Amino acid sequence: MARGDLALVTGATGFVGAAVARALQAAGFTVRVTARPGSDRRNLAGLAAETVPLDLAAPASFAPALAGCRYLFHVAADYRLWVPDAAAMRQVNVEGTRALLRAAAQAGVERTVYTSSVAALGLTPDGSPADEHTAILPAHHAGAYKLSKYDAEQAVRVLAGDGQDIVIVNPSTPVGPGDVKPTPTGQMILDAARGKIPAFVDTGLNLVHVDDVAQGHLLALQKGVSGQAYILGAENMMLRDILHMVAVQAGRRPPAIRLPIAPLVPVALIMEQIAALTGKTPLMTRDVLKMARKKMFFSSARARQELGYTPRPAAMAVRDALDWFRREGMLK
């Protein structure tokens, strides 16, 4: 892998994709990024990269974007925790991924790093950290997004098994600078920093700095084994501790009320019904509550041992996220 090698990054207008593109540029790669017409391109500011159109629902756009690329980082995905049309999400995340990777092989791309998610992995019954070998059960498929990412990863594994050079990475819950949309987790950080989260449910997440996730992508390109998956996470934390950390850093009072999940289910149902009528994303869904019943804790031991992955503490990720939100005027 030499300086100047051309790498295509899909989803570079998004949170993780932009971080991957910046990391590649800093490492000396020539970077090409994709963007759909009309997409928010704020994350591309300051990035010395050619921007080309690509739509995962339009396979005709694949070949021109891939032409001349030695490497592909397929980061793009439809990431929403509630969708009115699950079939449309599946078309992008599963069928679009399969078609793009086949097009990459035809275009002569030497190696692909595919961005999956811990949403595609199983969870342990006792809440201990899961890893790449933890069995996934039907009960773990809470919602269209998780199911689409699981099926997409299985499709990628089939392609790798057929001989295509593809390394899989599974980011946990990234936070940090550049979350322009913001992501559901970024919105939670924002709301907590604004003092808008007075209570919490008893669940847990694995937080990781988005720039560490980006570095994990580069390490996967350099050292990953084709067909192998690597969890890119950092620190397992209970939600109450995450919200406390955000509140302290933002100068707010931490939430002190613990809510049981069961009484929230009918409330979530009503919110979903309203969302179906208005088209606006509900503040809470039954799938989110279903996920909250499990501690989404994960181990990055394989990535640490095999790739040399060294993520920083979650507190630094939250600090950098809040600093960026503050500079962008989003904490007002």
Rank of each mutant, 00 (worst) to 15 (best):
A58P: 00
V167C: 03
A23E: 15
A262P: 04
R327M: 05
Q222A: 15
L331I: 01
A99W: 06
H244K: 15
P313L: 12
P138R: 07
T278W: 00
L283H: 01
A139E: 13
M316D: 11
Y114P: 06
L101Q: 02
R326P: 06
I261D: 13
V109K: 05
F73Q: 11
E95N: 05
D78W: 12
A57F: 05
A2V: 03
P263Y: 05
R70N: 02
V83K: 01
T97S: 15
D320E: 15
T285M: 09
G233W: 08
L269K: 13
L283E: 01
K290W: 03
H141A: 13
A193G: 11
G308S: 11
P198T: 08
A301V: 06
P84H: 02
A77R: 08
L307G: 01
A301L: 14
D211G: 08
N236S: 03
K332H: 10
S39N: 07
D40F: 02
Y79C: 12
V118G: 11
A321G: 07
T124D: 10
P129Q: 09
A321E: 12
V180P: 00
I270L: 14
K280N: 11
R70K: 14
G127M: 04
P64Q: 08
Q154E: 13
G233I: 02
I261A: 10
V180W: 04
P59I: 07
V213R: 10
A139T: 08
A152W: 10
A86R: 10
A77G: 08
K181L: 01
P177M: 08
Y150F: 13
G308Y: 13
V288T: 14
L101T: 06
E95T: 14
P198D: 05
P177H: 08
K280S: 09
M89E: 07
T278C: 02
K223L: 03
P313C: 10
R90Q: 07
F297Q: 00
R312I: 08
A314W: 08
T185S: 13
V83G: 00
W324L: 10
A314K: 09
F297H: 12
V225C: 12
G176P: 14
A87R: 15
V33K: 14
T203H: 04
E132I: 03
P198I: 03
Q249L: 14
V20C: 12
T278E: 05
V248K: 06
Y309P: 01
D320C: 04
L54Q: 05
G195F: 03
A77V: 03
T185F: 15
F62Q: 07
N236C: 09
P171E: 01
A105H: 04
K223Q: 12
R304P: 00
Q305P: 02
R32H: 08
S300E: 05
L277M: 13
P37L: 08
S117D: 04
P129A: 08
A49Q: 07
G216Y: 06
A57R: 13
R102M: 09
K196I: 00
A76R: 00
P198Q: 04
L101D: 01
